[in-house]
């Protein structure tokens, strides 16, 4: 049996001297022993080791929660396979974390949800979620997205649900950035109703017809908060969708030829040389923004941030 030492019976200044000698991992472990210890460690960290950590978390497929804290000069990791809520609470309280920059969820959906709830309970905002559904699960995508509703940036890297949901039953989302890599389940209704006010939308494996894209563009012209869209699907024919005589006259669509500098909605610019029938400008009603709609590398894009280049 290891020697025992009644730490709490030390005079307060000596007690604090001992706490000052612990490293971050030890501070965290001590704080988890009791509420009193947690308060004591919090005091020491606030006075003697004030830091502004950035937090990222991973819930692994094996159910381990890894909390990574980093600042300009240091990095520390905590791992636990149980007591997620207590762990998150302790880290948030001790290190005064107000937001989680990225939450990577790879476990079963129920556990993923537990982590999101624990973050909310601890008063920690989540800036971004990256989700990987386990092969053994097939969660309804709308249920999954609803859990992520108030998170600005969401990336669904793996999703096993493949059946198209023709009539979405969920109320619309307003994600700042929504990235769905397995979007077979997405129907035109999702584009025109559920995701129409998402600022940046990236879809992969979504199967949509030219007519459906046309109806989406018409809907966008009527009014939408969407500023960037990318659909990775090679079967579109943009000329048929938006080209001459295919778009109603009361919708303005101009063919754009030449060099155009276009931003991807995440601040990165690309310059393209557009040929006839490859790029069109459409304009939203009610003094809304203009956008370029173009095809490139088997992808269809819409972007409101573009600039025509002279050369």
């Amino acid at each position: 049996m290891p020697p025992r030492f009644p730490l709490n019976r030390l005079p307060i200044l000596v007690y604090e001297d001992v706490l000052k000698l612990l490293d971050t991992q030890e501070h965290f472990n001590l704080a988890r022993t009791s509420k009193k210890s947690c308060t004591a460690v919090e005091k020491i960290l606030t006075i003697y080791f004030p830091r502004q950590y950035k937090m990222k978390c991973v819930l692994t497929a094996a159910g381990g929660l890894i909390i990574k804290l980093s600042d300009a000069s240091s990095q520390v990791e905590f791992e636990t396979f149980s007591f997620y809520t207590q762990c998150i609470n302790t880290v948030v309280k001790l290190f005064k974390i107000s937001s989680c920059a990225e939450l990577d969820l790879q476990d079963i959906f129920a556990n993923d949800k537990k982590i999101i709830d624990a973050m909310k309970e601890a008063g920690c905002e989540i800036s971004k979620v990256v989700m990987w559904e386990k092969p053994s699960e097939k969660t309804n995508p709308e249920t999954m997205l609803n859990v992520l509703r108030n998170i600005p940036e969401v990336s669904i890297q793996k999703m096993n649900y493949v059946k198209v949901i023709p009539k979405p039953i969920i109320r619309p989302f307003e994600f700042k950035d929504l990235d769905i890599r397995y979007g077979k389940w997405i129907s035109i209704k999702h584009l025109t109703e559920t995701f129409i006010d998402c600022q940046r939308l990236h879809l992969e494996k979504s199967v949509l017809s030219d007519a459906e894209i046309k109806s989406f563009l018409k809907r966008w012209i009527e009014g939408s908060k969407m500023r960037f869209l990318c659909i990775e699907y090679s079967q579109f024919n943009l000329k048929q969708i938006i080209g001459e005589n295919s778009f109603p006259k009361h919708f303005s669509a101009t063919d754009l030829v030449g060099r155009v500098e276009i931003k991807n909605g995440a601040g990165i610019s690309y310059t393209h040389r557009m040929t006839e029938g490859q790029c069109y400008i459409i304009k939203q009603k009610k003094r809304g923004p203009s956008a370029v709609v173009y095809q490139n590398d088997d992808k269809l894009f819409l972007s409101t941030e573009f600039k025509r280049s002279r050369y």
């Binding site: 290891p2 020697p3 025992r4 030492f5 009644p6 730490l7 709490n8 030890e26 472990n29 001590l30 022993t33 009791s34 009193k36 210890s37």
Partner: peptide, 9 residues
């Protein structure tokens, strides 16, 4: 283990 060693209630 810390609770045990440092006799933390």
């Amino acid at each position: 283990e810390i609770r045990e060693i440092w006799m933390i209630p």
